[in-house]
Every structure is written in C-alpha cells, then in structure tokens.
Design a protein around this nucleic acid. Structure first.
Lengths: 136, 136
DNA sequence: CACAATATGAAAATGATTTTCATTTTCATA
DNA sequence: TATGAAAATGAAAATCATTTTCATATTGTG
C-alpha cells in the first residue's frame, strides 16, 4: 500500500552525494553547492523534501547546529554492523542483526533518541563468561 | 575576570520555573505562558538571552523538535550523581565526582555530545573483580 | 500514447530565534 | 544615599532555515 516512488535525476544526484560522504554531516547548503559544482541545479525545495523523506525512512543521522540541520546517510554496511567489546578479555566481536536494527529504529522514531551505529556494546564474551562460571 | 552577574526578577522567575520542572523539557513558549499565569511579563528576548546564557554554562539539557528548542534544567543533585552498575552481581553504586563532571562538560562542549546525567556506567564492582582475580 | 500519480521549483509564507538600540536596573564605591 | 559604569531589559525589526502553495513537468503503468 506504499506510494509508488519515481526515480528522478534530482534524487539520484542527492543520494549519490550522500552515499559518497557517509563520514560527514551535510547541510542542504552543502548539497546545493555540490550540485552546482556539477553544473546542475536542483531547487532548494526539492532537496528539503527529499531529505525529509529519507529522514522519515530512518536513513539519515541528524545533527542540528545553529538552527541548521546536518544530514549523514547511514550506509547499509553501517546500519547492520555492530561491535561487541568484551569487558574481560577486550576482544571485539563484529555482528549483524536485523532484530537489533529494528530495536534501534524503534528507539529512534518512538523515543526520539538517535543512536550512533558506531557505538560499542560492552559485556562479556562467551569464553570469559564460561571461565567466570567455573569459579562459582 | 568574569563578568559580574546581576540578580534580576526576570532571571529568578525563569530559574525558579526551570528548577521546579527538572523532569520536563520546556520551550520558550512554555516559560512565557507560565510567567503570564503569574500575572507577570518577561520579554521574549530576555527569555531567549537567559536560556542561551544557561546553555553556554552547561546548565541545560537541550532537545529540538520541529525547529523548536526545549530546555531542561540539570539539577545540581543530578549533575554530580552517577550510577555504577556491576555487571556481575548487579549491585548499583551511587557516586559523586567532580572530575567526572568535568569530563562530561568537556565532552558536551568540545565534542558536542550531550550525555544524559542519568546514564548508567557498567563495569565490575571491587568484590566481583577480586573474586574474578582469584580464579586466574 | 494516455493518464494518473508523483515530483519539481519559484515565489511567498512561516516562525523561531537573534539583533538593534534606547531605556532601565543593579550594585559597588564614594 | 547618591553616583555611575556595567549589565540587563524589551519592543520592534531583521534574519534565515525550512515549509507551503500552486502551476507545471516528469514518471511509469496499462
């Protein structure tokens, strides 16, 4: 029942720029200027509308500075890639998890709390937990 | 070499309202309306200026919604009161620490990362750490 | 091709926040 | 308690990022 999406040059240009800068926060102004450098032009309104759309879809991290919003595209890779760090042995475990993403989305949309996908979860790895169990 | 601060009725009214609502986020509008209910009046400009001052001094938590800023006063109690939770035995340790506050202020002002004073730090308490040591 | 849904963009509107500036208040010192 | 410099106030105007409006253009399906 979702609206059909039309593919347009404007959206492709914006998405491409965002995807090439997943390490930066970009303002509407940054995006407009970049498009301009490519000798193209996209109406400000269009940029705002498309960013709002992406934001609703949880595809952006947002930062606000001096009343200006800055956007960062959350790369797919980043979206489902997390780090566990064992407090005992220091080992870092990479993991991917759909449930986890859902939980994060929930917190972001419902609780208005923006979690940085780069965050590290502390705990104990299986080995260390087992070792600890032994001394009880 | 700091500027001398003058005590004014306006500031007292605003601070009082903030301090009585450390569990809510208040907008400039909320503040103005509250003052109005007390049959007093404070210019919007004054409210904005004072809040900006408090913000610079790290006395407020900020939330932005629909282009509107919401402010929450960080009570003294809350500012230097933290919780440690032992991952092993689950014990919760309350502690107060000036150094810790300084570190948080640093992160907030320099790294633009707003830490919720209510956050919990996970780790191991002394007892559990010792117990663990024994089995090595 | 045609048509309905969707997207675009220029211009105007919005609205929260900041600036300006003339006036008032505070408080230390005489 | 009078004085004055520093600080604070507030009305009005300005700012500026973002949203709305609306007429036009584009997309993709049948």
């Amino acid at each position: 029942m979702d609206k059909t999406e039309y593919k347009t040059d404007q959206r492709e240009l914006i998405i491409e720029f965002l995807k090439n800068n997943t390490d930066k926060y970009l303002s509407v102004d940054d995006i407009e200027k970049h498009i301009f450098k490519l000798n193209k032009k996209i109406g400000l309104t269009t940029i705002y509308r498309f960013l709002n759309k992406l934001e609703k879809e949880n595809k952006l991290r947002i930062e606000i500075n001096n009343h200006t919003k800055y956007y960062q595209y959350i790369s797919d890779e980043c979206r489902n890639h997390f780090h566990l760090k064992c407090e005992d042995c220091g080992k870092i475990i990479h993991f991917e998890c759909e449930e986890f993403i859902k939980m994060i989305d929930h917190i972001e949309t419902e609780h208005k709390f923006s979690i940085d996908s780069k965050f590290v979860i502390y705990g104990l790895c299986l080995d260390c937990k087992n070792r600890k169990g032994e001394c009880r």
